[in-house]
Every structure is written in C-alpha cells, then in structure tokens.
Write a protein that binds this DNA or RNA. Structure first.
Lengths: 233, 233
DNA sequence: TCGTACGTTGTACTAAGTACAACTCCTTTT
DNA sequence: AAAAGGAGTTGTACTTAGTACAACGTACGA
C-alpha cells in the first residue's frame, strides 16, 4: 500500500517506543526496548536517536534510555488546550483535605475520558492514577456522568442527569469506588466531570452523601470560574 | 546514507510536527502545520494520522489538529523519573505566597537545564514559563548554581559554591531577575536548583536578602525530604 | 459565478528504513 | 583463564515504505 489512506509506520514505531516506558520502568535498555516493541535492536537505536534529537527521549550515562523533557512541555501545552485556569489545583487540594479521598477532573477525548488534573489523597490506602491516563466513558462514575450530559434526549442516562451526580463501586476496577459530578463552561457546555475516588470500603451511602455536598460546592465554584452555569443541583 | 549512524527522518519529522504547537497555537490546521514544518500537506496528513493512533495528536471536529493526552501521560512519567516527592508542589506554593515571586525547580538535562516544577506568582507582573522548557546552564541564576555544584574543583564558580546561592538580573532574559539555591538528594548529590524569578525592579539587594532566607529554608526542607544533606548555608 | 482556500486520494519514483550478520566490549561462568 | 553470553554498535544489501506531485471535491467569500 504505497500511499492511499495509511500512516507512516516509522512514526508509529517511534510512538510505541515512547509508550514502552511506564511508571515502574522509567528507564529501559536498548535490548529491553527492542524486545518490547518487537523490533531489531539496530532499528530501535536509530529511532531512539532521532527521538533524542528532539529530547523526546534522553540517553542515560549507562547508555540506557528514558523519556525526555519535551514530553513534559508538550503535555503541558495539551493541558492548556482546555484553558482550565489555575484555580483547579488548589480546589482539588481542598477537596482532598476535606474528604480524605483522591480528587480528579476528567474530560472527554473522543470515545474515552482522560484524567486532566488530579490530586492524590493523603491516606495510606488511596486511589492513585496518572494524569493523562485514558479510561472508558461507559465505565465508572466520572465517565458515566460525562456521557449523561453529552447525549441530551431521553436515554438511559436520564436519571443521572436529573440527579446531577453518579456513584459507582467497582464498576471499572473492582478496587475503586467513585462519586462524580459534572462541570460546565461557557454557559451550559459540559467541560468534564469532577470526581472523588477511593476504596469501596470508604464509600458507604452516608459517606457518599456527606462527600457529595462538598463535591458539589466545588463543582459549582469551578463551573462559575469557567464561565459555565453552576449546574443542575 | 542507508544505515550507518543516522536516525530515522520520518520520526524527526513527526517530532517537528509536535513541536509546531505552542501555548498560543495549541490548535493548527493541516495546511498551517505543513507550512511550519515545510513538508507537503499529504505527508503531514499521513504522519499526523499515525501520531493520532497513539493519541500524541488529536483531531478536532473541524479537522484541525491539537496535541494529545498521551503527551501528558508521558510527560508525567518523565517527571517521576526524578522521583521528586509530592511535597514539592505545596512547598513551591508556600514560597510564592511568602515572597510574591514565581518559584521553580530546575534540573540538569545534558548541557541544558529543564524547568521540572513551577508555581507562578499571583502578582499581575510576574515571570511565567512552562514546565518542561529548557534553558542554557550558563545563563541565569538557576543554571549557574547547578554548574557551580557540578564541577568540584577550583573554578570560576568557587564563589557561588561558597556563598551557597546566586542572583542574576537580566542575564539570560533582560526582563527577568532570579535568585537560586542548590537542592541535594541522596547525600551530597546535587539534584537541581530552587529559584525565585520576577521582574528586576522587584529584586533590590534588600529584597533579595529577605527572599533568600525564605528560599534557603525551603531548600533545606526539600533537600532533607529527598535524603540529601541540607546544604552549605 | 468565479476564485481561492481547504482537506483528501492516487500514483510513480526512489530515497529511506529495515533486518541481518559481523564486530567489539564487558561481565559472568566454569 | 578461557569461554560463553550479554550488552551496544556499525556496515551492507534488499526492497519496502515514504515522499512530492498533481488532481479532485468541497466550502466559503468576493
């Protein structure tokens, strides 16, 4: 297939290289890298060198590789794409101290949701995730809330829309429960969802009720700050 | 040159594509993109599609492009490479409220320095920069401090090492002044530098002296938290 | 109604990327 | 100590796979 609607293989290989790195394996040897992406070492080396030219990859002293600073820079520009003001960070921090659970903001990105901001709980047992991670829209409270406020007409999400929040326990991941509410911007446009997440054991009905209030106050503040209407509740 | 020590051109083209996006131009049309990287539209389209497969790029509804969530995720992993604990964020925030100036942490990355963490001042006139940006090591206080604590022997940086801090005004950028101190980890290993930056007009000798104390307290706290010795001062 | 911008597809050409094998250092094993 | 295995690197031959070009459809503005 010379050039119809295809992409560029070398570029996708490069992307796979980058994605081979994780929280735990933040530094990889050439051989390990080659093994993971299933390419010849020499091929990987050439691609890695090109990535390094733009600081998407950095070479360690021991010749192993790690991700580069340009990724942080670009990731930051991605965030700014959403023009989410810097009141978000302290707001999430407040939420964490008030509720004891991890707080996060999710936005829709195609048919997935992305964790755009996040603040981890201080408790030893807590839900931890990484900013930029993607999850399904139709699993977990933060996703369902987004769905509920996207498709308007009478759907299975009518209830959520009416209630103005949603809570799940172990739906997407058996280990985590969450409560989520919508955030609006520029009028009634949905921006995303604000959620508290933690272990299901701590998400009793009454705990949810208590935290929901706090969550809604924060969501209203946020929506207003972003030029949206405070929301349903 | 088939395959000696070169890289992969297509990968570098893809990297240039990503770098075409900035704070201001966080969304670009295909044509604009092609113009900036000086490639044919069809070529750009193919590369962009491949980048989009990995969510390094995202397509807008109006067919224009913007950076993708994977960049945030990878950028975050890059940050974690430095195993800098999450006490940093609040510490920088504190620094900002105490001094009124923007606070940032720089680490060495090859022959440059990278802004790894940052907290902007609340004042209307303030120094703003983006996390992940790279600057020269030999210009500006944060860079010079890093240099001073890297090469041990009697060099031109002896004075800085003895003083334990450095202040500059308009060295790298005529518009900005800064005071910087070193941060250590794992014993006496240099981690990077902690700096306050702002307009030169606000960096009088006495202002520097006052802010320096605050800065040094914070740096000592940070160093200890990272298993380093508190430092010289 | 024309003109010019856009994004898109197909095609021909060849440059550019690939895998392989060979090589050099190391470190570990026997 | 020698050998065996692993690391990263380089050169080469083959041909795939990426490129620019030109042509097309569409939408917007003059």
């Amino acid at each position: 297939m010379p050039g119809n609607s295809a992409g560029v293989a070398a570029v996708e290989r490069a992307a796979s290289l980058l994605e081979a790195f994780t929280d735990r394996d933040y530094t990889l040897s050439l051989g390990e890298l080659a093994r993971r992406v299933e390419l010849d070492k020499s091929t990987v080396l050439r691609i890695a060198r090109s990535l390094a030219k733009h600081q998407l990859l950095v070479r360690n002293d021991d010749a192993s590789w790690r991700l580069g600073p340009t990724l942080m820079k670009l990731g930051n520009i991605y965030q700014s794409t959403f023009r989410a003001s810097d009141i978000i960070e302290p707001l999430l921090a407040d939420l964490v101290t008030q509720t004891g659970e991890s707080a996060a903001i999710y936005v829709r990105e195609g048919d997935e949701r992305v964790c755009l901001f996040r603040h981890d709980s201080h408790q030893s047992i807590r839900h931890s995730a990484r900013v930029g991670s993607t999850y399904p829209l139709d699993r977990g409270a933060p996703g369902r809330v987004i769905l509920a406020f996207i498709d308007r007409p009478g759907s299975i999400y009518d209830e959520i829309r009416k209630a103005g929040f949603y809570a799940t326990a172990g739906e997407r991941d058996p280990q985590v429960a969450s409560v989520a509410v919508p955030i609006f911007r520029d009028g009634a446009t949905l921006f995303g969802s604000l959620a508290l997440t933690g272990p299901p054991a701590r998400f009793s009905e009454e705990a949810i009720r208590k935290n929901l209030e706090i969550l809604q106050v924060a969501a209203r503040k946020l929506s207003v700050a972003m030029g949206g209407e405070p929301g349903t509740t």
